[in-house]
């Protein structure tokens, strides 16, 4: 992405220092800037075009998909969608994905919220050690321990079950969830807790009635982030839950469309992919701003 070394300078060296009210938008389009704009548009096009193609191909016949790749013909209506839904048993797959995602999310929150509270308010050495352990977690990419995790699943007699994912996914989400939430919890004024304690409230009570309501934005953030990463998880779910049609998730079901000879029916693949990305896009459409800020905050995820 070598943006043209914009040689042209908005070069008005001896501009009299008249402090005109600063304009909010620099409207001076230098050639360098125009070139950059063009490059950004090219990249944007590579993001949008495949999605457009994916969308229209899902609604056309196999023949049209090859002969008229860019024309929205809608020649086969919803045929591809229903065909791929039945073929991959996507109804069950959606339920499996939903089950794993929702249960994992619940476990994640139930264990991360008290932990964040403890780390935010404890001044002891143990808390520092715990925080170090979590920080280490950022640097360990999940993939590194794929095989030993599988061995653990076998040991626990949970190989090829969805339940192991519900144990594993919350564990993998702890570092980010706890560290992000701890930052939110630290912003809660300590005086609130002190006065509640004096009134006789126990720690659980304090956590539930003071911290929980005040850190809702943080909880929303980690819920969104983990919804995306749990729903989208592929490699671990593939290896641990497996491709058995009864328990597999959407993400595992989808690639089975590709046989050893690659893809034969493009329209069908496009229909399947469309169905699989739809849930996240729907949530994005609803929560757009919130999701964007969540993704930016969660960037430190390894």
């Amino acid at each position: 992405m070598a943006v043209a070394t914009s040689t042209t300078v908005d070069n008005q060296p001896a501009r009299p220092v008249v402090r005109a009210p600063r304009r909010k938008r620099p409207s001076r389009f230098t050639p360098g800037l125009v070139g950059s704009y063009a490059l950004v548009l090219v990249y944007a096009a590579t993001l949008v075009l495949p999605l457009y193609w994916l969308f229209i191909s899902a609604f056309k016949s196999q023949l049209d998909a090859v002969d008229a790749p860019f024309a929205p013909t809608f020649s086969s209506g919803f045929d591809n969608l229903t065909r791929v839904w039945d073929l991959l048993n996507l109804g069950d797959a959606m339920l499996n994905s939903l089950y794993i995602t929702a249960a994992s999310l619940a476990v994640t929150l139930v264990i991360a919220i008290p932990a964040a509270y403890a780390l935010a308010r404890s001044q002891g050495r143990i808390a520092t050690v715990f925080e170090r352990i979590y920080a280490l977690g950022f640097l360990i990419p999940g993939f590194a321990a794929l095989v030993p995790t599988l061995l653990l699943a076998i040991q626990l007699d949970l190989f090829h079950t969805r339940e192991f994912m519900i144990l594993y996914l919350p564990a993998s989400a702890q570092p980010l969830a706890v560290i992000l939430l701890t930052q939110f919890m630290r912003t809660v004024p300590q005086e609130l807790e002190e006065s509640a304690t004096i009134d006789g409230a126990g720690r659980f009570r304090v956590l539930r009635s003071i911290y929980l309501p005040l850190t809702m934005p943080g909880i929303a953030t980690i819920s969104i982030l983990n919804f995306i990463s749990f729903w989208n998880d592929y490699l671990y779910t593939l290896v641990i839950v497996g491709a058995n049609a009864k328990v597999r998730t959407v993400q595992v079901a989808l690639p089975t469309l590709q046989g050893n000879q690659g893809i034969t029916d493009y329209a069908l693949v496009c229909a399947g992919t469309l169905i699989s990305v739809l849930p996240v896009f729907v949530v994005y459409a609803v929560l757009n701003r919130r999701m964007e800020s969540a993704l930016v905050q969660g960037a430190l995820k390894g």
């Binding site: 008290p114 808390a127 702890q174």
Partner: peptide
């Protein structure tokens, strides 16, 4: 006071060590 508080963090830490650090060590 701290010791009582830190118990709140235990489920999360144990869970995390068991399912992610453990397998890594096993590697």
């Amino acid at each position: 006071r701290d010791r009582g508080l830190i118990v709140f963090a235990l489920p999360s830490v144990v869970w995390y060590v068991l399912f992610t650090i453990g397998p890594l060590v096993a590697m």
